[in-house]
């Protein structure tokens, strides 16, 4: 149990990268990037977890209760926003690329090489 969450995070990262490497569709590649990113959420929150503790939100909790690490949660919040906005930007690039190039298959994007 003590390493299982970390291993899951690593697994998700590798799965996302595998998807990116073998992708045949740019929309799908952007989705795979989102998958790879979710490994960071899992790792950070697993790092911040403390057994027997609860969320550091004291509106319904005595202030001396044991709580999990709030810092990683703030980091993951930032991370999620960053991920969503980057996804949006990349997808808008895909839309325009499809119009100009006529395909969303990355294997056919050979305009820049050599």
């Amino acid at each position: 149990m003590s390493v299982f969450p970390y291993l899951v995070a690593g697994w998700i990262l590798l799965a996302g990268l595998y998807g990116l490497v073998t992708s045949r569709n740019l929309v799908q590649a952007v989705g795979c990037l989102a998958v790879a990113q979710s490994s960071t959420y899992v790792l950070l929150l697993a790092v911040g977890y403390r057994s027997g503790a609860t969320a550091p939100v004291f509106s319904d909790l005595p202030t001396d209760a044991p709580v999990v690490d709030p810092v990683v949660q703030a980091l993951v919040l930032t991370d999620i926003v960053v991920g969503a906005t980057v996804t949006a930007l990349l997808l808008s690039l895909v839309i325009q690329l499809r119009k100009r190039h006529g395909t969303v298959d990355p294997e056919e994007l050979t305009g820049l090489r050599g």
Binding site: L13, L33, Q37, V72, L97
Partner: peptide, 29 residues
């Protein structure tokens, strides 16, 4: 089409790398 392709490669590769960095930050934390 080429700026779009270049920007997409730029975006995907750099974002993936940034997330790897974040994983490293998590390990250090």
């Amino acid at each position: 089409e080429r700026p779009l392709q270049g920007a997409l490669a730029f975006g995907l590769v750099n974002s993936a790398a940034a997330y790897l960095s974040l994983l490293g930050i998590g390990l250090l934390y």
